[in-house]
């Protein structure tokens, strides 16, 4: 048995969501039709609005519906420091830590040759010209501590160091509240090699 074409379309459409297979898509479609038509209409409208309205901020490449996002427009933030992250969710994570008041640059990915992502695809020419134009004094590399994240950090670091900017990399090691016993060997090795003298903060 198959549904009518409109429902079939809806089920297919829902499958574009990550982690949604045919079965869950069907459940979602039936739920919306049976119980929540109002919510579904609102969802449809906000989807259309977001897909047509949201672009990339011209300065930091984060998602924004205006030319400059709210962080880039904020005059109280420190314009001399730039934090390079992989994705918009990383911006949220750093913002929530409440310990950073500078600007961001979002790569929207990391260098990953096997996936066909090289320096051009992550907007490094834009980063380079921004650093030069805005007199940035420090660039913090906050890419993920994965192999690709490290490769990206090294590449960006070499690129910008040639322009005379201070480039720093976020520290990595044992998580707060963690126990050494449960930390994997690679992380522990990093934590040991990045140790610091007591009393120097």
């Amino acid at each position: 048995m198959s549904f009518s074409p409109l429902i079939e379309n809806l089920v297919d459409g829902l499958r574009c969501l990550p982690g949604v297979g045919p079965k869950s898509a069907q459940r979602m479609a039936l739920h919306l039709l049976e119980r929540d038509r109002e919510g579904a209409t609102a969802l449809a409208e906000s989807l259309v609005a977001a897909m047509t309205g949201v672009r990339h901020c011209q300065q930091c490449r984060n998602f924004s519906e205006e030319t400059l996002c709210s962080i880039c427009r904020d005059q109280r933030r420190d314009n001399k420091t730039l934090c390079v992250v992989e994705s918009p969710s990383d911006v949220m994570a750093v913002e929530q830590s409440g310990s950073y008041r500078g600007q961001y640059f979002v790569l929207m990915g990391h260098l990953s040759p096997i996936d066909g992502i090289g320096p051009e695809e992550i907007g490094l020419d834009q980063l380079q010209s921004r650093v030069a134009d805005e007199d940035v004094t420090e660039v913090i590399l906050a890419t993920n501590p994965t192999v690709e994240g490290e490769a990206t950090a090294y590449y960006v670091g070499e690129l910008l160091r040639a322009d005379g900017v201070t480039v720093t990399r976020i520290a990595h090691g044992v998580p707060l509240g963690g126990e050494l016993e449960f930390v994997d060997g690679n992380t522990l090795a990093h934590a040991l090699s990045g140790r610091r003298e007591v009393g120097i903060t």
Partner: peptide, 20 residues
Amino acid sequence: SRLAAPRLVGKALYCGLYLN
């Protein structure tokens, strides 16, 4: 884990990515 992971840094890391 079988052995400690080789720590590839900088250009050696690029070489590793090339091999992969």
